[in-house]
Amino acid sequence: MAQSTQPHGRSDDQSTWATIVRNDGKPHPLQDTLAGITLVLGLIAIGTCGFRSLHILASWTGLFGIFSAIWGQYISATTTERFLLVIGGGAAAVGFGIGLAHGGLLGGVVGY
């Protein structure tokens, strides 16, 4: 029975991020970048949603994080990318929701 094997060690030309995300052995620069952006937006949204004065930042980064997670899920190629997109998108959604509860996307800026 023929089985294909992949090396378990990390080669010198691959970074740690590439080793974690690229579990099929093929490069996916757009998908990897989108997963990273979604994680960063999710972390910003969840980190700033606890402060009432930062509700605009939390709301907008959460909204952009949700959209990037949706787009990333649509074009993702590996399970690891999907996992990172779900974590980042979930954090962005929580930050977006709490940011909306604290004043919303434009609360206080346009006079209401």
Rank of each mutant, 00 (worst) to 15 (best):
E81C: 09
T78H: 09
S68K: 01
G65T: 00
D24M: 13
G89M: 05
T19D: 03
S15W: 05
S11N: 14
Q14E: 12
A101G: 01
I56E: 10
F96R: 05
L105W: 04
F96A: 12
E81T: 13
A91Y: 00
L54I: 02
A58H: 07
V94Y: 03
N23F: 01
R82G: 06
F51I: 08
G95A: 07
W17A: 15
L63E: 07
R22F: 06
H102P: 06
G50K: 10
T19I: 02
T33Q: 11
I98F: 01
F83C: 09
C49D: 10
L84H: 07
Y112R: 09
G62K: 00
L85W: 03
Y74R: 09
I87Q: 08
I44G: 05
T16L: 12
S15V: 06
A93I: 01
G107E: 05
T38N: 04
S11L: 14
A69Q: 07
L41T: 02
L54Y: 09
A45E: 04
A2S: 15
Q73V: 04
G103S: 08
V40I: 14
A35M: 12
G65W: 01
G36K: 04
N23H: 09
G107D: 00
S76G: 13
I20F: 08
V110Y: 07
G72V: 00
D24Y: 07
L100Q: 13
G42F: 03
G72A: 06
A92N: 04
L54H: 12
G65I: 00
I75E: 14
I44E: 03
S15G: 12
Y112G: 08
T48M: 11
T19V: 04
H8T: 10
I66L: 11
T19L: 00
Q31H: 08
T5G: 15
I37V: 15
T61W: 00
P7K: 12
I75L: 13
P29L: 02
T19W: 04
H28D: 07
C49R: 01
I20L: 14
I75Y: 06
Q73C: 11
S68F: 07
T33S: 13
Y74S: 11
Q6I: 14
A35P: 11
F64C: 07
A2K: 14
G97N: 07
A92Q: 02
G95N: 04
P29N: 09
A18R: 12
L30T: 15
F96I: 03
R22Q: 09
G99W: 02
G95H: 03
A45K: 08
T79V: 10
H28Y: 10
Q31N: 11
L39I: 06
L57C: 06
R52D: 13
G47C: 06
L100A: 14
V86D: 04
G36E: 11
L84A: 15
T80Q: 06
P29C: 08
A58M: 10
H8N: 11
H8D: 12
T33R: 10
H8V: 06
H28T: 13
L105S: 02
L30G: 09
T38E: 00
T16W: 03
N23Y: 01
S68H: 05
V40R: 02
S11V: 13
S15C: 06
Q6M: 13
A101I: 00
A69V: 03
L41M: 10
G99C: 09
T79K: 12
G9T: 10
L43I: 10
L100F: 12
S76M: 11
H28M: 05
G104D: 11
E81V: 10
I87S: 07
W71P: 02
Y74P: 01
G65P: 06
L30Q: 12
L39R: 03
Y74N: 08
